[in-house]
Design a protein around this nucleic acid. Structure first.
Lengths: 209, 209
DNA sequence: GGCTAAGGTGTACGGCGTACACCTGTCAAA
DNA sequence: TTTGACAGGTGTACGCCGTACACCTTAGCC
C-alpha cells in the first residue's frame, strides 16, 4: 500500500499522489485506503519512513568514514524520492527514522564526541544534506545547458541585464564552459564539513586530556 | 496584493493561502486576483521574491564577515516566512533573487575566489542555510521541553524503546537538561563552514602565488 | 449457524484552482 | 462631447481534492 504510494510519487510526482489516483493504481475504490491509514498525513509519514529505511546508517569503521557513507546514502535516497525532501523531519517519526537517528547518534558518541559536539556535528551535517537535496531538486538538472540557454536569451532579449547582473552572467558563462556535477559538488561540501567537525572534535579532545 | 498574500501566509500558514481566502482578505472576489497574476504559481514566485528582498546581500567589509551577515539575515528572513523554505530556488527567479545572487557571487569573486572555489563556497553555504531553516521549521520549537515529554511518554508507555533506541533516549535526556538554542546552533555550524571555506581558499591562494 | 472483525463500496459535502463571459469606470483621441 | 479601448472587478460553472458516513462482503472462530 505505502509501497504503491511511493512508486506513484516517484513516477508521476507528489502532485499526482491523490487518494483517488493511489486507489486506482491499487484497483480499489478511494475510501478503501482509509481502512489502512487514518488520513493522507499518515500515509505521507509512512512514505517518509520508507525513505529512511533505504538510507544506510553508520555501523562503524571510524566515525568519519561512517558519517560520510551515511550522508552519501541519504542524498542518494533523497534523489530517488525527491518528494520526501522537506518532510523528513516533520510528521510522526516512524521506526526506520528512529533507528537511523539512534544509530547515527550512537556512532558519534561511540567515537567519544562530547554531547554538545555530537549535536553540533549532527545538526550541521543534516542541514547540509537536506539543503543540498533541496537545491538539487529545485535547480535545473543540467546546469551547464540551462546556463547556456539563459545567456543566449539574455543576449537577445534584455541586453541590459548583462550590466545589471554581471556576476550572474559570468557564472552562467563559466558553468556552460566547465560543467557542473551534483555528485562531486556534494562531496566537496561534505568533506569540507567533515574536516571542520574533525577539527572541533580535536580541539575538545585536547582540552579533556 | 502580493504583500497581502505574504501577510496571510505568515499569519495563518501556507495551507490557508487559497485564492478564495486571499480574495476575501482583499475585499474582492476570487477571480479578481487573476487580473494581477496569471495563476497561483506566479503568485508564489512573487512572494518568494519578497523574501529575497528582505535578506541583506553582502556589500563588503571582507568576504567572511559579509557572507556571515548574509547567512544570518537569510535565516532570519526564512524564519519569518517559513512557507518560503523549499521554494526559494524553484519557480521563475524574480529581480530581488537575481540581485541577491549577483551580489553574493560578486562578493566572492571580488575577494579573489577562483571560479570553482566560489561555486563550492556558495553551494555549501546555501545548502546549509536552506537545510537549517528547513529543520528549524519542522522540528519542535522548544526542543528541550519536547524532549522531556517524549522521555516521560516512553517511560510510561513503551519501556522497550529505552533499550531499542538508547542513544535517542540519551539525547532527549541531555537536551532536556542543557537546553537548545537554534540561533547559537546555526552560528556554530555557520562558523565551521566559513572556516572550512577560508581553508580551501588559502590552499588555492598558496598555489597561485 | 451465528458472531465478529477486516476490509472493500457508494454517495455526498465542502473546498480548491481557474476558464469564460460579462460588467464598470477612467481617460485619451476624434 | 462622444467614443472606444483598456484595466480591473463579478458570477457562474467545472473538475479536481480529502474524507465523513452508512453499507456490504468475506473469513475465521465459538
Amino acid at each position: 500500500m505505502i509501497g504503491a504510494a511511493v512508486a506513484l510519487a516517484d513516477r508521476d510526482g507528489i502532485g499526482a499522489l491523490s487518494m483517488r489516483n493511489l486507489a486506482e493504481s491499487l484497483g480499489v475504490v478511494p475510501m478503501a485506503i482509509y481502512k489502512h491509514v487514518a488520513n493522507k498525513e499518515e500515509l505521507l509519514d509512512g512514505m517518509v519512513d520508507v525513505v529512511f529505511a533505504e538510507a544506510a546508517f553508520p555501523v562503524d569503521g571510524g566515525w568519519k568514514a561512517a558519517m560520510r557513507r551515511r550522508a552519501i546514502s541519504m542524498r542518494d535516497a533523497l534523489a530517488r524520492h525527491a518528494w520526501a525532501i522537506g518532510r523528513m523531519e516533520s510528521g510522526v517519526p516512524g521506526p526506520a527514522n528512529l533507528r537511523h537517528h539512534n544509530a547515527t547518534m550512537g556512532c558519534l558518541r561511540g567515537a567519544r564526541f562530547s554531547f554538545p559536539t555530537a549535536v553540533h556535528a549532527y545538526s550541521v551535517m543534516d542541514s547540509y544534506i537536506y539543503g543540498f537535496a533541496l537545491q538539487e531538486k529545485n535547480l535545473p538538472a543540467d546546469i551547464p545547458a540551462e546556463a547556456e540557454t539563459r545567456v543566449r536569451r539574455v543576449e537577445q532579449e534584455h541586453p541590459s541585464s548583462a550590466e545589471e547582473y554581471p556576476y550572474l552572467m559570468d557564472l552562467a558563462v563559466e558553468l556552460a564552459k566547465s560543467g557542473y556535477d551534483y555528485t562531486t559538488e556534494f562531496e566537496t561540501g561534505l568533506d569540507l564539513i567533515l574536516d571542520g567537525i574533525e577539527r572541533i572534535r580535536g580541539r575538545e579532545a585536547a582540552i579533556s586530556e
